[in-house]
Computed example of a mutant assay.
Amino acid sequence: MNAIQLIAACALLASGSASFSHENTPHHTRSAPAAKEQKAWGIAGDARAVARTITIRMTDDMRFTPSRIVVREGETVRLRAENKGRVLHEIVIGTRADLDAHAELMAKHPGMEHDEPHMAHVGAGQKGNIVWQFNRPGEFDFACLIPGHYQAGMTGTITVSPP
């Protein structure tokens, strides 16, 4: 980890945006609506604007089905993550560089908990949702960043095509 990544990780931990214990705390319990922050891959969507729901299954063979998704620029979708496995999985949307950096941080702090609109932590046999507006064209990624899962190939791609 370089100095900039270390400073960013320390800032994340100090800000309270990260806590520890993936297994023993409820996930995605917000006391206030999440602030919408523009990311390279889009922005948190409004559930009332959802055009369609895309179901993504997660399994203990460290795969997503489907692993490739195509959406139109401007489309707001609900990604419904269904954990068909017996261990905790998550889905995190981002660029490859963002996911690589986040996976490195997760490997160093395996119990790190985070709650962002572009992430869903899903317990065994459970479902989780991400409502996202893909307002930028391009190729983006999604992954399970639980230590070992990303490294085992639990990744997928999202193609955002022009409207």
Rank of each mutant, 00 (worst) to 15 (best):
M1G: 15
N2K: 06
I4L: 15
I4E: 11
A11N: 12
L12E: 05
S17T: 10
A18D: 05
A18W: 10
S19E: 10
S19T: 12
S19I: 08
H22P: 04
E23G: 13
H28G: 10
T29S: 06
R30F: 08
P33F: 03
A35T: 10
A40D: 09
W41P: 02
W41M: 08
V50D: 00
V50H: 02
A51M: 02
T55F: 05
T59Y: 05
D61K: 10
D61P: 07
F64M: 00
S67R: 05
S67E: 08
S67Y: 04
S67T: 03
I69F: 00
V71K: 00
R72Y: 09
R72A: 12
E73I: 02
G74A: 03
E75M: 03
T76M: 00
V77A: 04
V77F: 02
R78T: 05
R78M: 03
L79E: 00
A81M: 10
N83K: 01
K84G: 15
R86L: 11
H89E: 02
E90M: 12
I91W: 00
V92E: 11
V92H: 10
I93T: 01
T95V: 07
T95Q: 06
R96K: 13
D100A: 11
A101H: 04
H102G: 04
E104Q: 12
E104L: 12
A107M: 07
K108E: 13
H109S: 13
H109E: 11
G111N: 09
M112G: 04
E113H: 15
E113P: 06
H114V: 10
D115W: 10
A120V: 09
A124T: 11
Q126A: 15
G128Q: 03
N129I: 07
W132M: 01
F134V: 00
R136A: 12
R136T: 14
R136N: 13
P137E: 13
E139G: 11
F140L: 02
F142P: 06
A143P: 07
A143R: 04
C144P: 02
C144V: 03
P147Y: 00
H149M: 03
H149E: 05
H149S: 08
Y150K: 05
Q151S: 14
Q151M: 03
A152E: 12
G153P: 09
T155M: 14
T155Q: 14
T157I: 08
I158L: 05
I158P: 03
T159E: 14
V160P: 07
S161A: 14
P163N: 07
